[in-house]
Simulated scan of single mutants.
Amino acid sequence: MTPTLRSERLLLSPYTPEDETDFVALLRDEEVCKWMGQERQPEETIRSLFGLLFTEVYPKNMFDVWAVRLDGRYIGHAELKKTGNVDGHEVICALVRDVWRMGLGTELSYRVVDYGFDELGLDAVHGCVAAENTRSLAMALKAGFEIVRDVTGEDGKVTRVVTLRAADRQLARQ
């Protein structure tokens, strides 16, 4: 079951049905989708994905997924899940635009990564970052992630696969 997590400023908790409008707005934002490396989806598709949280993901304990809040306000989304994108667990984070450049992305990713290492006992955590997303790449490298390979999509866009090994995470924060 997805636990509730806290960081210095953020609360990460399982989604509730009341979060649907905010979830849809986040994933309908073209700028957010661009930096997540995905195409903007129709609203109906996003609402269906949201519904799956309550019919599949949470009941079957498929993976951890959180609504992210700052001072009680929904500001984003986070996941930690085993995926086909990498050989292991991938961290996925997205924040609403009006909180960008406040250090919250770093704080959020650190908290999710710490959960993966400390609570799940993972040896490594991976991420997939668009090569053009220089801010997220810089944040990942600062956190100790290393670029392990580039993947070029059919559209020619490059995604960087980054990896942080449990043994290296504390070194990066010193």
Rank of each mutant, 00 (worst) to 15 (best):
M1A: 12
L120A: 08
H89A: 12
C128G: 11
L52D: 14
E154Q: 12
R28T: 13
K142T: 02
N61G: 13
A167Q: 05
V148D: 00
R47D: 01
D168A: 06
G37E: 05
G72A: 09
P17M: 05
G153M: 05
K34W: 04
V113D: 05
Y15D: 04
T21L: 14
Q41C: 15
G84K: 15
D19R: 11
N85I: 03
Y15K: 09
E18Q: 15
L104I: 01
G88C: 11
R73D: 07
V113Y: 04
I46S: 02
Y15E: 04
T106V: 03
R40W: 02
E154G: 13
R169S: 02
T2M: 08
E107S: 15
R135S: 09
K157T: 08
R9S: 14
A124D: 00
T45M: 10
M139H: 07
P42I: 00
L5E: 09
W100N: 11
V68F: 07
I147S: 11
A131P: 13
K81I: 01
N133A: 09
L26G: 05
E119W: 01
W35S: 09
R69D: 10
T159F: 02
A25I: 01
T134G: 09
P42A: 00
R73C: 06
K34R: 15
L122A: 12
D123R: 14
A124L: 00
A140P: 14
A94W: 03
A138S: 03
Y110F: 14
E39M: 07
Y15R: 09
R47E: 01
T159I: 00
F145S: 06
V129C: 11
K157N: 10
K142S: 05
D150Y: 06
L49G: 12
S13K: 15
F145D: 02
E119I: 00
A138L: 00
F50D: 05
L141P: 03
Y74M: 09
G144E: 00
V148Q: 01
D22S: 13
R135N: 07
N133Q: 08
R9V: 10
H77P: 15
A25C: 04
R40M: 07
G156W: 00
V99D: 09
A143M: 10
K60M: 04
C93V: 08
V96W: 03
G144H: 03
T21D: 15
L171P: 04
Q38R: 14
R149F: 04
Y110I: 13
D22V: 04
K81V: 06
G76A: 06
V86F: 07
L12V: 11
G88E: 10
I46V: 12
N133R: 06
G116W: 01
H77S: 15
T106W: 03
G116M: 03
R101I: 01
E132K: 08
G76R: 07
D118N: 12
A167E: 03
L53P: 08
A166N: 11
F145Q: 05
P42M: 00
V129T: 12
N61M: 10
Y15I: 04
R97F: 01
E30L: 11
L26M: 09
P14C: 05
V113M: 09
R9G: 13
G103C: 08
W100M: 08
P42Q: 00
G105A: 06
V57Y: 01
L53N: 09
E90P: 06
L122T: 11
P3M: 05
V99L: 11
T106P: 02
F117N: 12
R135G: 08
